[in-house]
Design a protein around this nucleic acid. Structure first.
Length: 265
DNA sequence: TAGGCCATCTGGTCCT
DNA sequence: AGGACCAGATGGCCTA
């Protein structure tokens, strides 16, 4: 190879590198645009590329369920769909965002979408972006709901019993094993043995999992008064052995109650 | 310090 | 020939 040819080759390589850089920047810009329309968009706490794609898939799937089956965006199932296959930190982030406050950001986004600008039209802030009333500003509070599901052993039912008919309108093809489920850390002293409510609720414990139940002694006494319905009237306090499967607890108590319990421990 | 994530470089392949 | 796309390699940065 002559020197002149080497130089031509080098110049071509440099040009190709620049094009490749530019191409990747375009790809990243597109990915960033996608991040902006995802739940829990934050400039300071960016989702990774792979998590963005996974969340986008889940988001489309979940919104399809909303449209087709009328599922509530405030339901536990909606959050489960969003979190499916996501890493635990991302799941916690999403769950925390959607379970805090009176108005799910998703709803705000949908409303904004319908009445406002199109995606990508905004300047200096996306039309679908945070915050919504009652929600913390990014990076999403300190311990509150962003940690709410960070509890060892919690496993949402939909994650546990995957089946071909798991979703009436069709679960999106799953591209690999799930990352570890949302986990509830540690301090719930939890039991492996069946709960009295297990059969009633058709709740199936998971071998090797823990943190299945929440019972009265998990609630510090000074929080009892804030339980829904009042401490004495609430079933969890009516019997010393009364226990709630965690998924049921999540339906029964607001995030603030559970957060309170969690932080107390 | 290991692992995750990322940007960049590079060579290969395909298409125009 | 040159551009687009892709995947592997590499090194930097950050965090647990």
């Amino acid at each position: 190879m002559t020197k002149a040819r080497q130089e031509r080759f080098r110049a071509r390589r440099i040009k190709a590198n620049a094009r490749e850089r530019s191409r990747m920047h375009g790809l990243n810009n597109a990915l960033d645009n996608l991040r902006r329309v995802m739940p829990c968009y934050s400039k300071t706490q960016k989702l990774s590329k792979i998590e963005t794609l996974r969340l986008a898939r889940n988001y489309i799937w979940a919104l399809s369920e909303v449209l087709e089956n009328g599922q509530s965006t405030e339901s536990h199932g909606f959050v489960e769909m969003l979190c499916k296959g996501l890493s635990q930190p991302t799941s916690n982030l999403v769950a925390g965002c959607l379970q805090l406050g009176p108005t799910p950001p998703i709803l705000n986004k949908l409303e904004d979408k319908c009445g406002g600008q199109g995606v990508g039209d905004s300047v200096g802030g996306h039309p679908l972006s945070y915050p919504s009333p009652g929600l913390p500003s990014p990076p999403y509070g300190s311990l509150e709901a962003s940690h709410l599901l960070h509890m060892k052993g919690f496993k949402a039912p939909a994650f546990d019993n995957p089946s071909p008919n798991e979703c009436s309108s069709g679960t999106p093809p799953y591209d690999g094993p799930l990352t570890p489920p949302l986990s509830i850390s540690s301090n719930f002293a939890l039991k492996q043995e069946p709960s009295p409510h297990e059969s009633e609720r058709n709740y199936t414990p998971h071998p090797g999992q823990h943190a299945h139940y929440l019972s009265a002694h998990h609630f510090p006494t000074n929080t009892a008064g804030s339980l829904p319905g009042g401490a004495q009237s609430h079933p969890i306090f009516q019997a010393s052995r009364y226990e709630l499967p965690l998924d049921v607890a999540f339906e029964s108590f607001t995030p603030s109650h559970l957060t309170y319990v969690y932080t107390e421990f």
